Amino acid sequence: MALPGQASAPFWKHRHPGHSTPNSTLIGRALRDKIATHYLAGLFTTPEDLARQIAAAVHQRQIRDRLSANSVGLNAIWSNTLIPDQEFIDESSINSLKEALASVANPSALQIDLQDGRYWWSTRLFFLACVADELAATRLLLFVGNRKGAPQSFVGAVTPATLRDRLARSNESLRRFDDLCRNSPIDSHNFEEALRKRGVDWRSIMDKDTEQKSRVFVSIRELRRWLGADFIERSIELRSADETPTAGFLKAVLDWPHPYAPITSEGVLTKVVERIALADQLARLFVEDSGSF
């Protein structure tokens, strides 16, 4: 809805002397806020002005819809499959991991909760990076944790391949497992058998004593030390799903260096946007709008 422009104050500011009580003022403000939030496109002075404002409102809604349509669901279930509840990655651990993967609709971007930095072992994170890289076609790992008392705060992002490479360089046993994986490829189409085989390979190198000597807790500090500039700690802020994305926000998404961009609200990870698909749809929207003039 749009309202005709006028030189005097907007209609809600005209109050009859007999209706200037505090209650009526509050009701008037509530009505004004509801109209401005849900129905008002703007003030117009000509039919052409009205048409432009309605087109802009529709355009903004289309952008919000496309942003939602290209969001990938966050999958944090991996956090509960390889944490060291057990002292060894045995068949039970592999079965839990298999079930976790099977329940993920889109494993392209996976969330890992570091909690307080004394939760994940580096050895288990390395095994996850190898499996995600080889079998799940995961493109990005997104880390969250407790920051200043706020759980699920975004910590940073890295590709599984990069994490795998850096951790393999940091430890001889991890490097041996990485070499074994690269020299004995598996058929990713036979997921269950491939995952079972990687579990066997892991246990052939990483026994209980070896893992105890190799592992360190995964914290933000350790991730920075391992990954350096490859650990991207920035995110793209959008305060709420109802907020209209600005040009600056869209540019930040399109400029993101990986195919999936993390979106946060006050630092808390809320969604991941598939950058290339969003860019394609925005381009189509622009072409359609250009052709309508």
Rank of each mutant, 00 (worst) to 15 (best):
R239I: 04
A252M: 10
F191L: 14
A168N: 02
L223R: 05
T210V: 15
I186M: 14
G199W: 05
P185G: 13
K251L: 13
Q212S: 13
V218A: 10
W256S: 00
D207L: 12
D209K: 09
S240L: 06
S173N: 09
E233C: 12
L227V: 11
P259S: 07
E193R: 07
S219G: 11
V200E: 09
F231V: 02
L250K: 07
D209N: 12
A247D: 15
N190Q: 09
D255W: 01
S214V: 08
P245D: 14
E222P: 08
K251E: 13
I186Y: 11
G199T: 12
P259T: 03
R215E: 12
C181Q: 14
S235C: 09
S184P: 00
T246M: 11
W256F: 09
D209P: 02
K213H: 09
S184Q: 15
V216K: 14
F231P: 01
I220R: 11
P262F: 01
R175H: 08
D255A: 10
W256L: 06
N190A: 14
K251I: 02
S204P: 02
L254N: 09
W202L: 13
R221L: 08
K251C: 06
G248W: 03
S235Y: 01
R182N: 15
E172P: 00
S188N: 04
R224T: 05
D165N: 10
R182P: 03
R198T: 15
L223H: 04
L180A: 15
R225K: 13
L180F: 10
K213T: 02
E211P: 00
L167A: 06
E192I: 11
D201K: 04
L254G: 07
D165F: 12
N190M: 07
V253G: 10
A168G: 14
D187S: 14
M206L: 15
R215A: 12
A241H: 11
D179I: 04
Q212C: 10
I220M: 10
P257T: 05
N183W: 09
L227I: 06
P245N: 08
R215S: 10
K208D: 12
A194H: 01
A194D: 00
D230E: 14
F249Y: 12
K197V: 10
S214G: 04
P257V: 08
V253R: 02
K213W: 07
I186L: 15
E172F: 01
S204M: 13
S235L: 04
Y260L: 13
H189D: 15
G228Q: 03
R225C: 08
M206S: 04
L238Y: 06
A261T: 03
H258Q: 11
A229P: 07
T246D: 15
V200T: 14
Q212M: 13
S170R: 07
I232F: 02
